[in-house]
């Protein structure tokens, strides 16, 4: 028997299993888009056949970081900007886990930007949800990396002179193999996109528009939204990198103009995940490393056998 019997257990899964019996009541403001992420994730998880104890949800800091408090699974509420390096190592340690990382736009595109670029570049097999509300919420309304140019706030009284980060385009350039945008106001699409993201073998980045009714009142509620995969107005092939890039660029421009475009923008099923690349080089074991510590018959290698070159 595996030391981790929750992994790949075959059984019926109830959506309610993902609601904690302790602290089930989120502290998010009424009308917060974060509820939409939580709901979509609870719906998607049973559909990908995962139970709470084979899921590791690693979050950053901010309102978004509390997702792991309100979603029942193994959770790691880490530090600002560092969810990705924690999460990707957990996946390397035990690839049997369903690893999901989540954080806000400041967390992922600002302070954690370096980790985002490199995790995408390496194409780790995991899902990354970025709660994008174009504002710093928990610290009470400062301009964030995705705030539109000219955005005024207490820390940018004269308005931001900076163009916002382009989350989709940047992720594509960096190497993510699945890139989507959805919005909290569109729960069905959100669930479907999260499901696809989790099923994808590689780094799946979901930019999740989550309205902040408290600090970003003047901004849109991300309605009406348009699903670019379904709309007659848009015609592009998400498996074509060039077309995807153009669609992303337009989507990012449109958001600044107040028009909300969502959908799956890029899917590359051909690119091997990082785990596969490392295994092909013989630099990652076929069996989960975490299992080895529970194998009483394993013959642990010793430094004593490395001493010839020191004699």
């Amino acid at each position: 028997m595996s030391a981790f019997s929750a992994i790949d257990e075959e059984r019926e899964i109830d959506r309610d299993e993902f609601t904690p019996g302790i602290e089930p009541q989120p502290t998010w403001c009424p009308g917060c888009g974060d509820f939409g992420v939580l709901k979509a994730l609870k719906q998607a998880m049973p559909e990908v056949g995962r139970t709470p104890e084979e899921v590791l949800l690693v979050t950053g800091i901010g309102c978004s970081g509390k997702l792991s408090s309100y979603f029942e699974s193994y959770g790691f509420h880490s530090i600002h900007g560092r969810a990705l390096p924690v999460a990707r190592a957990a996946k390397l340690a035990n690839p049997g886990l369903e690893v999901v990382a989540a954080g806000g736009d400041g967390d992922g595109y600002g302070i954690g930007g370096n980790h985002w670029i490199h995790t995408a570049r390496e194409n780790h097999d995991m899902t990354y949800i970025v709660f994008n509300n174009e504002i710093f919420g928990l610290t009470k309304g400062q301009t964030s990396p995705t705030s539109p140019k000219g955005h005024t706030s207490k820390t940018q009284p004269g308005g931001s002179a900076k163009d916002p980060v382009r989350p989709l385009s940047t992720s594509l350039q960096a190497g993510a193999s699945f890139i989507a945008r959805t919005a909290a106001v569109n729960p069905n699409q959100a669930k479907e996109i999260l499901k696809q993201a989790m099923e994808h073998d590689g780094f799946a980045h979901v930019d999740f528009l989550t309205q902040c009714p408290t600090w970003n009142k003047d901004a849109k509620q991300y309605v009406p939204y348009i699903d670019v995969n379904d709309s007659d107005d848009y015609d592009f092939d998400p498996t074509d990198r060039r077309e995807a890039a153009e669609m992303m660029f337009e989507t990012e421009n449109k958001l600044s103009e107040g028009e909300v475009l969502t959908g799956v923008y890029y899917v590359d099923e051909e690119r091997p995940s990082y785990q596969q690349e490392k295994q092909a080089l013989g630099e990652m074991p076929e069996e989960p490393l975490a299992d080895r510590y529970w194998d009483d018959d394993y013959e642990w290698e010793r430094s004593y056998d490395l001493l010839d070159k020191h004699k």
């Binding site: 981790f4 019997s5 992994i7 104890e53 790691f76 509420h77």
Partner: peptide, 9 residues
Amino acid sequence: PGQKGGRYL
């Protein structure tokens, strides 16, 4: 993580 009955935050 992955152990049955061990989930925590």
